[in-house]
Design a protein around this nucleic acid. Structure first.
Length: 229
DNA sequence: GCGACAG
DNA sequence: ATCTTGTCGC
């Protein structure tokens, strides 16, 4: 990993973009999942409008029953601003902090954000996948880049997400009658498996259980801290 | 120059 | 993401 990435993350936007271009070349879209997935983790971040504290949560669930086996949270202050396309430099530090608290290593990770469906093919899920050297999937609630047709309204319906002639992901309806999710491989997984895993992890809600629970836990951690002051 | 733009 | 109350619908 790049030195500046191991410390402080105090990069300029120009440096961050250059780093993304280099790291993108290390992303693997080859299937590298265990024969049978036993655990899958979900991760998400929460923070205040005008606050500097960021809270990350990681929840590990068992497959195929989706029972929770472990959950951790972490808190850290961030300085990197929100810039579309540079989200990982803002959220990855606290997310990695949370992963260090985990007692076990999940077989795969679902992330609230894009994988390779990114202008430089290195969204938050991809960047995290490289750091952890684990299969990751980007499960974003809205589009960052790429084009696609209209997707059906039934759970499981999907259309390809294309960018510069490449299939970078899929627009997937995870729950009938609800806005679709933008699914893309983060690292060490194919579009097909990313979609398959996303569906396997949910059904009752728009978001897959792992990220849905992580989102809730991160919010609880933040509100608990706010209550102290 | 103009519009788009994860969380 | 967050700021915020109620409200429509299964």
């Amino acid at each position: 990993m790049h030195f500046s990435e191991l410390h402080g993350w105090d990069l300029s936007s120009r440096e961050a973009i250059a780093l993304q271009k280099r790291l993108a070349g290390q992303i693997s879209l080859q299937e590298d999942l265990p024969p049978l997935l036993k655990t899958v983790a979900g991760v998400d971040v929460s923070y205040q409008r005008h606050g500097e504290l960021f809270f990350a949560a990681v929840v590990v669930l068992c497959l195929p029953d989706l029972t929770v086996v472990e959950q951790v949270t972490a808190c850290r202050r961030t300085t990197f601003p929100y810039v579309p396309g540079l989200l990982s430099f803002r959220e990855l530090p606290v997310v990695l902090e949370a992963f260090r608290c985990l007692q076990q290593i999940p077989d795969a990770v679902l992330v609230d954000g894009q994988g390779i469906a990114h202008p430089r093919r290195l969204g938050l899920a991809s960047h995290l996948g490289l750091w952890l050297d684990l299969p990751t999937v980007g499960c974003a609630k809205s589009r960052l880049c790429g084009e696609h047709g209209i997707v059906g309204g039934q759970r499981g319906d999907r259309v390809p997400l294309l960018l510069d002639g490449d299939e970078i992901g899929a627009v997937l309806t995870t729950r009938s009658g609800v806005k679709p999710l933008y699914i893309s491989p983060g690292h060490k997984i194919s579009v097909q498996s990313a979609v398959q895993l996303s569906l396997q992890c949910g059904g009752r809600y728009r978001l897959p259980e792992p990220t849905r629970l992580a989102h809730h836990l991160a919010n609880c951690a933040r509100q608990a801290r706010e209550g102290q002051d």
